[in-house]
Design a protein around this nucleic acid. Sequence first.
RNA 1: UGCCCUGUAGCUCAGUGGUAGAGCAGGUGACUGUUAAUCACUUGGUCGUUGGUUCGAAUCCAACCGGGGCAGCCA
Length: 461
Amino acid sequence: MKRLLIADLMRSEGERNEVLLQGWVRTRRDSKTFFFLEVNDGSCLKSMQVVVNEDAEGYADSKGVTTGASVSVKGRLVRSQGKGQMWEIQAESLELVGGADESFPLQKKRHSNEYLREIAHLRPRTNLFGAVFRIRSKLAFAIHRFFNDRQFFYVHTPIVTASDCEGAGELFRVSTLDPKSPPLTEDGEVDFKEDFFGRAAYLTVSGQLEGETYATALGNIYTFGPTFRAENSHTSRHASEFWMIEPEMAFCDLAADMDLAEDFVKSVIAEVMETCAEDLSLFFNFVDKELKQRLEFVLSRPFQRVTYTEAVEILLASGKTFDNRVEWGVNLQSEHERYLTEEHFKSPVTVYDYPKNLKPFYMRANDDGKTVAAMDVLVPGIGEIVGGSQREERLELLLENMKAHGISEEDYWWYVDLRRYGSVPHAGFGLGFERLLMFITGVGNIRDVIPYPRVPGHAEF
RNA sequence: UGCCCUGUAGCUCAGUGGUAGAGCAGGUGACUGUUAAUCACUUGGUCGUUGGUUCGAAUCCAACCGGGGCAGCCA
């Protein structure tokens, strides 16, 4: 008999015999001569009610069938006599596969997310985390579909890298040197020439620079993989290991880049709303009452687009007093971003043309001499979700910028080469996968949308 | 890295200077097509740790260790 999934059984059109259900017991309700089991197999939010009568095989030894145990049930799928579910399984036989004693930590009640983080290996067995991680999977798939449909190629940029994509944050070093007695140079410094890769190596903070090399060959590409930042950040929106999506397009300017970012965000949200309707309903009902409305609103309206200069003017004209002073030439702070998305526009906002001095060396200089062709997409509740730019494709200007930022030309010779041979205008952006998932689910902490989150001081499991 | 909050039963929390509590979970029993089942009974605690103040500390103070939030850095 082949195992059937609850997701499929729930869509049955009629009763059926010879059903094999295998999963984990969520709860058990006993009567004198029979009992009910709520069995979840992870295939969907819903659990299947199983009715075990005293004549079912295995009824006598069913004492160990308790919350958390795994079971294998053979029986018939029948219309339920009770309210609350259309289908249930009338067990013909029940087998305890793996028991769970009274120390099983998940109870038939709500647990705090903080507690569940301590048992991250068991939390996917809860409704909330099961839903988060099914949606995470569907969202990843939607992202690949989005790019594939538009003829972007998926490029696997390296995880171990020697370049640091200046401006993207602190790096984790990758080394096999003995920390107790590393080889030293004549100056007494650690000699990384002796290290595994013959040079200093790090975990990537961005695949962008390598992505540009493939965009200027294959046309439109994207990367989608893990990135690592050794920043000592303690917020609900930062993790040391997270996944990032980075499209890069040749023959593309900032306007088209912003169009793509908006199209991307809307398309994948729309797909998830369609394919994960049941799981999303849990977030709509129990996590954030305004979530549904917010997502529908995002889909139905164009993102607001303002230049950095206009954004500053809006903030100055708001009459609000901010903790951080608003002034042209300084970064927009969280409170400013929040005002723009949550109060002024009440929708996602794309801010572009940022002051040159705030941004890294690779962004393209605008003609005004003061700004660069950079853009950020800000969303209510989360802040920055996308950061992108048109890249500087003019050799002289790029070299000038590198000098100004103290970046050595020798280290980036290959990156500069793109401007020497067949240089083209090109643009791209980076989007935090987890932040998008937070926005879609309304989950407020990045540690609850990554299976095993890594943040400063924590790498359990 | 800075600022703030917090730590009491397996979980969620009350107790704010005078002999440790509730709900849920767990256990036992009853009962019923139940569904966060219900009803009765019941087990369960070095009050994060160490030190201090006090006749007396879960309660006040300090340090340390956990957990959380906000800000900066960014995605």
